[in-house]
Design a protein around this nucleic acid. Structure first.
Lengths: 126, 126
DNA sequence: GTAAGTAGTATAACGAAGTATACCAGTATG
DNA sequence: CATACTGGTATACTTCGTTATACTACTTAC
């Protein structure tokens, strides 16, 4: 590394106090937890008040019972949601959000915001 | 639906002015554009100042040249990034963010925030 | 009794996403 | 001269996400 490069490097570090390695790790952690096509829509649906299997299923276009079943199981295991059996007759199964689940609120809101702006852009110049 | 349920439903609608269908669509649009394991880390890397192939590659743990090459090609085609050939000797290839790319800033920041908080939680109660 | 809804499971199969590894031509470094 | 870097491509392979379809057991409504 020559003097010019060294100077550039030091300027870069000074102007950018963020820790790159830590950030990319945080980003990849988040992406790992949210991986796949369905977890975010499911979290969104449950946080929006949907509690029962068929209600959640109907609220997410394109999802199949199998995928919903699989994801709900995985998300229960990971404390993202809570599965409650209401011992009525007939038995009712309720899925509810945990605090953990609510912590994705900001990410989901930003994604909704982006998606809406995206559609707007497409309408304006197609 | 009985009277009690009807009342609850109407209260729910009044207290929740958001359009569910529009939101889930916006969410799924966003997820579609960002699908896969690598686009968000790549956007982040380029927005953080990495410009050249090997720099981007080194900044993203786990990515292979093949995946990076594939994604960069796709993202160039979709106007997410710009590929510039600097006709020096040797030829240098530069990838730079577009405005479109910058529009993911808020989502990425929220994801980094979540990932950091997540690690913090794990440290506190393992 | 029959149709429709609830909460799923079972099975099979497809294909995209991702991994691993090697390789290339050109250039720079020691 | 050997090594290592650059910007990728080629090939082969694996995995697992996803779809499609059917089915169960129970309940409610007509």
């Amino acid at each position: 590394m020559n003097d010019k490069e060294l100077l550039e490097k030091s300027n870069e570090i000074l102007s950018n106090p963020r820790n790159q390695d830590e950030e990319i790790q945080a980003l990849q952690d988040t992406l790992y937890v949210l991986s796949g096509k369905w977890k975010i829509p499911i979290i969104n649906s449950i946080c929006n008040g949907n509690r029962r299997f068929r209600d959640i299923e109907r609220s997410i276009p394109g999802i199949t019972t199998r995928m919903l079943s699989k994801e709900l199981k995985e998300m229960s295991a990971n404390q993202l949601i809570k599965r409650t059996v209401v011992d009525d007759t007939p038995v009712i199964i309720e899925y509810s959000p945990t605090d953990y689940c609510h912590s994705f609120g900001s990410i989901i809101l930003e994604m909704i915001k982006w998606g809406k702006a995206h559609r707007q852009r497409l309408r304006e110049k197609p």
